[in-house]
Design a protein around this nucleic acid. Structure first.
Lengths: 133, 133
DNA sequence: CAGCATCCGTAGGGATACTG
DNA sequence: CAGTATCCCTACGGATGCTG
């Protein structure tokens, strides 16, 4: 911490934040994580994914797959047979992303109790405030 | 990889995916990352945040701060002076989260070119398909 | 089987005027 | 200064019928 840096340097956070936001947006959305992880196991078919990600609709499965494919995280392979067979596999950068995401999973596991308590405390404080007013 | 695990075990992905989704949801939303990182520098005031996160409205700044505070990632300190002074600081788990997020930033930095190319390739393929049809 | 097309509801977010 | 309250709008996502 230099004398200069104490002058409230807001800058430089931006590039970092921007890059990070893009990654997060990539895996945000209600189903992206589920689909990505399910497909990260190796080749998996459309209908298998549908069962592997409970509650997802065909529409959302397709949309999510297209997005992941577009970003190069998943590869789509069509086998020109009848009936059609389509398989989704993780790409190398898709696998790497999953690995990077484990840092978040670890964090979540370490602090899930703390977060739960923080929420309870916050909500409790909110409702007592209403009583006071 | 045991013989058993080759039997397309879809299960167990779920817990992992679920935990992960919750973390991602926590930092998803258009402004969460920006605010979190800006505040992770140490105590910072409301108006300073407003400038540190360009483009954010008061409404969204407040909403984002409340969410981060509720999850215990940020702490809010009110100094009962006039004019009022409110400072936001990262909590320990907030700091840890930022550290965990660097894994994603690294990934993004390593592959930003590849992603860009994947997108271009995908979009190009899409538009040529339209021509063919 | 693996999608695409359509309709529709909700929640996230933008702009901004007002206030303790 | 540090918010709240209000209005509005669009993008995400759910449900479902159709098709190569």
């Amino acid at each position: 911490m230099t004398a200069d840096s104490s002058r409230k340097r807001v800058h430089r956070v931006d590039e970092h934040a921007c890059r990070l936001s893009e990654v997060v947006e990539r895996v945000s959305g209600k189903w992206s994580i589920g689909v990505l992880l399910a497909a990260s196991r190796g080749p998996i078919r459309y209908t298998e994914l549908e069962r592997a990600v409970p509650g997802i609709s065909r529409r959302m499965l397709t949309l999510t797959l297209r997005n992941l494919e577009r970003d190069g995280l998943l590869a789509r392979t069509v086998h020109p047979t009848v009936p059609p067979k389509v398989e989704y596999s993780p790409t190398s950068i898709g696998v790497e992303l999953c690995e990077a995401l484990t840092a978040l999973t670890d964090w979540a596991q370490r602090h899930e109790k703390a977060i739960e308590m923080a929420r309870r405390a916050y909500d409790a404080a909110e409702s007592t405030e209403e009583q006071t007013g």
